[in-house]
Design a protein around this nucleic acid. Structure first.
Length: 482
RNA sequence: UCCUGAGUAGCUCAGCCGGUUAGAGCAUCUGACUGUUAAUCAGAGGGUCGCUGGUUCGAGCCCAGCCUCAGGAGCCA
């Protein structure tokens, strides 16, 4: 009895004249005799050669793009030029027909926009085969990285009652019947009637829970879905995305940056080593795409060169204050080419400024630290005011070319009094976050952590340009198909 | 949410100054060929021009509103 062999293994095999079985989907059927078959194990197809004189014509007619087939035959050296091995077909079976007039994927180029509309079928294209293989490799590498370093993988809740995280608009979770909303005496919604007896939402971050666990395990990380109900329509935002959030006791900001940089290098290296065919394909795809653009807008490095560059060069670390001074003296600022001109310390950096620093000035990933306290979250550790009395916090953002912010993190404020003061200033309820403050009440310790946007990482490594193309089923405003 | 652009055949697009029966390439189908590599050659079928309303003798084209998509901005990861 012959068992099915994966195409990936057959393509490397030299077991000529051996009888094999392949099962997969037809990519093209050329010349009435050459079937290109893909089974997902490799980005490459295997060619099966049919003797059309000895095969029922009605059967050959069913060999259409997208059809699932099972083929039994002999592995032989190919007589043609395009491939090393191929299969001489002895038996051809159609497992599942695919009406060529209706199947949307044709043996031709499709736009990414069109493929997004048929996300249930786009897995079958080379591009998405490669993208989601790389996505898998990156996810695996992340777990391996943390596991090797003794981190505990922590599952933080997806449904949360706290809305004080301040990370963005939240999706409400409720079983209330919208046609019969229970009301309070004052006319508001009576959430006591709701499933959890209080208002609940989908999480925007597992960080606060992560901190609780870090105060026991030392080093933990989360890796799960996160939800933001922002009406963001960009190539970098999703309403549902995956985030990695490590949290480490006894780490300061330097340790935090070191870990983040090490993590990024580790997973990029893992992808290069484990997805060579996929990255090669994606590199070529990107070169092809960039041909549409004027020379001046094309990337200086191809995809693989860019990834290797990240492995070989330290990220540029500088403070917000230093960044402001670079930007202030930059050409686009002096020539008033920025939409938002830099004149004073304290303003948040716009994406045009971040892009200038990363893509024009340093030409490498940049870590910005010590942002003004006013523009950052309440839990970030406060620095001593500088000589000018300016208040900063120990925040760090890692900025990548083409992506912008890929990581945001900080050393956390472990001093109870200062933390409470800041919550009061920012009007954040201490009662609601009393459980969080307990970490500072009982054995508080310096600690730090960061959040890595998984899809942004996949964007960077695959060279794709729209975040909707690196998650299988993107959720964005006005779109929750499939 | 704001700014800009787009929506015409299954896909990618063209369609002149508003004028008769709406075009191409690819895909599909039919036939030919048979060691092809997005095969090739010949032929055929395929359209609610995003939706609604308006202007006009006449609208794919002009105007208004809406919907959707894309790029950029904001927000962020």
């Amino acid at each position: 009895m012959v068992k099915r062999t994966r195409i990936k293994d057959l393509l490397q095999s030299a077991d000529f004249d051996k009888t094999v079985i392949v099962k997969g989907w037809v990519k093209t059927f050329r010349n009435n005799q050459f079937i290109a078959i893909n089974d997902g194990s490799s980005i490459h197809n295997i060619q099966a050669v049919v003797d059309f004189n000895a095969t029922e014509e009605s059967l050959l007619k069913r060999v259409t793009t997208g059809a699932a087939v099972a083929i039994k035959g002999r592995l032989v050296e190919s007589m043609g030029k395009g491939q090393r091995v191929e299969i001489k077909v002895d038996q051809l079976e159609i497992l599942g027909d695919s009406d060529a007039e209706k199947f949307p994927l044709q043996p031709k180029k499709h736009s990414l926009e069109f493929l997004r509309e048929i996300a249930h079928l786009r897995f079958r294209t080379n591009t998405f085969n490669a993208v989601f293989k790389v996505r898998h490799a990156l996810a695996y590498a992340i777990h391996q990285f943390f596991n090797d370093r003794g981190f505990v993988y922590l599952h933080t809740p997806i449904i949360t009652a706290s809305d004080a995280e301040g990370a963005g608009e939240m999706f409400r979770v409720s079983t209330i019947d919208f046609d019969h909303i229970p009301r309070n005496a004052d006319g508001g919604v009576n959430y006591k009637e709701d499933f959890f007896g209080k208002a609940t939402n989908l999480t925007v971050s597992g960080q606060l829970e992560g901190e609780l666990a870090a105060m026991a395990f030392g080093d933990v990380y989360t890796f799960g879905p996160t939800f933001r109900a922002e009406n963001s329509n960009t190539t970098r935002h999703l309403a549902e995305f995956w985030m990695i959030e490590p949290e480490m006791a006894f780490y300061d900001l330097e340790d935090n940056m070191d870990l983040a940089e090490e993590l990024l290098r580790y997973v990029i290296r893992y992808a290069i080593q484990n997805c060579p065919d996929e990255l090669e394909f994606l590199k070529d795809r990107l070169l092809e795409e960039e041909k549409q653009k004027p020379q001046s807008e094309r990337a200086e490095l191809d995809l693989l060169a860019k990834l290797n560059f990240c492995l070989e060069n330290d990220f540029e670390r500088l403070t917000y204050t230093e960044a402001i001074s670079i930007l202030k003296n930059s050409k686009p600022n002096q020539k008033k080419q920025f939409k938002y001109l830099i004149d004073d310390w304290g303003a948040d950096l716009q994406s045009e400024h971040e892009r200038y620093l990363v893509e024009k000035h340093f030409k490498k990933p940049v870590i910005l630290t010590n942002y003004p306290a006013d523009i950052k979250a309440f839990y970030m550790r406060q620095n001593e005011p500088d000589e000018l009395g300016r208040k900063t916090v120990r925040a760090m953002d890692i900025l990548f070319p083409g992506i912008g912010e890929i990581i945001g993190g900080s050393q956390r404020e472990e001093r109870l009094g200062l933390l409470e003061q800041r919550m009061d200033d920012m009007d954040i309820s201490k009662e609601e976050l009393s459980w969080y403050l307990d970490t500072r009440r009982f054995g508080s310790a310096p600690h730090a952590g960061f959040g890595l946007g998984f899809e942004r990482l996949v964007l960077f490594v695959t060279g794709m340009t729209n975040i909707r193309d690196v998650i299988p089923f993107p959720r964005t405003p006005k779109n929750a198909e499939f």
